[in-house]
Simulated assay, not measured.
Amino acid sequence: MSMSQLATEATTVSIGTSNASDTSALVRRRRLPASWLTPVLTLPAAVLITVFFAIPIVQVIILSFTDPQAGLSNYAWLFSTPLIGQAAVGTFLISLSVTIVCLLMAYPYAYLMTIVSARTRSVMTMLIMVPLWSSILVRTLAWVVLLQDSGPINGMLTAIGLGPLQLIRTPLGVGIGMSQVLLPFMVMPLYSALSRIDTRLVTAAKSLGAHPVLAFFRVYLPLSRPGIFSGCLTVFILALGFYIIPSLLGSPQDTMLSAMIQLQVSGFLAWGRGSALGVVLLAATLVALIVVARLGKNTRTSKGGAK
């Protein structure tokens, strides 16, 4: 190889190395600092939440203080109207009752899902998820047919000597319909928590002489508290805002806050009063979140102290 060829190849290698170093330097200059990475990645979600959630909530709060005139007149009306208080108490009682019923029904079901075979678990998951694929309105209309005075359920109760009972247009009928709709939202968090529990702990407690019932309440149940808190919070918050089921299965005497909001906004065009009701319902939801979060924190703290 001649000296000229060697010089040419050396020049080519030198140019390639220079270009590579220039490219890597350019990439390093264009790379964002690590401290900017999180804000940039979360920016689309922050914009979405701000536009579709934060701004409407702020508008509702402002409207509750300014319509039809600036001041606290809407909140004074809200807290001085006995009907609103009755609707609020009824809403919370029904929501709490539905939460308890869903917990009592979902806990055994979720526990059974943790001990069966994979195929049976898939079938059980499908059974609990299929109702979510149909419209709430359609399911509610089906309950209207089932719960009416001359419906199939009252027919069976009459045949065995327990009926007929007043099921529709009562809080009981509302609770039945809401429990059926909200049950999946209790089952899935419970199953997620129960599937992570090591059942050998219960076996160890039994081997040390603990009764099975005592082993359940002292070992298994405390370990499932995260799923209980999550499921109860989800069901309770969703139940607070239900409108269709209470409207179709309930009675005017058992009106919930969601129906009162709809009546004020659509019926009376009282946007300020409806907004005030919405703000109070939102505040009650936030209080429920804080209480459950505090209970969960205390539970984790007590577990850490026990260790």
Rank of each mutant, 00 (worst) to 15 (best):
D67H: 08
I245L: 14
Y109V: 05
V116C: 03
V27E: 08
L194R: 00
A204N: 02
Q262I: 07
Y109W: 14
C102W: 01
V60S: 00
L281C: 02
Y191Q: 04
I49G: 05
P164V: 10
L295S: 08
R225Y: 14
S134A: 05
G90A: 11
R294H: 09
S64G: 02
L183M: 14
M124N: 00
A45S: 05
S275W: 09
L233C: 07
A239T: 03
A283D: 13
G151A: 02
G241W: 15
T301R: 11
S192W: 02
N154Y: 09
P44N: 13
G177C: 13
G155W: 15
N298L: 08
S134H: 08
T299C: 09
L257M: 09
L194T: 00
G227A: 06
M113V: 00
L147M: 03
I15Q: 13
T66S: 14
G151V: 04
L289A: 03
Q262W: 13
S2G: 08
M260C: 01
F236D: 01
S24P: 04
L93G: 04
T91V: 07
C102N: 01
R200E: 15
L93Q: 06
F268K: 10
S302W: 15
A34K: 13
I290C: 05
L238P: 03
L165P: 03
Q264C: 10
W271C: 06
R273C: 09
P246Y: 08
K303N: 08
S18T: 08
L147Y: 03
A7M: 13
R294V: 09
I245V: 15
V58P: 01
A110E: 06
T91C: 12
G250F: 01
R200K: 14
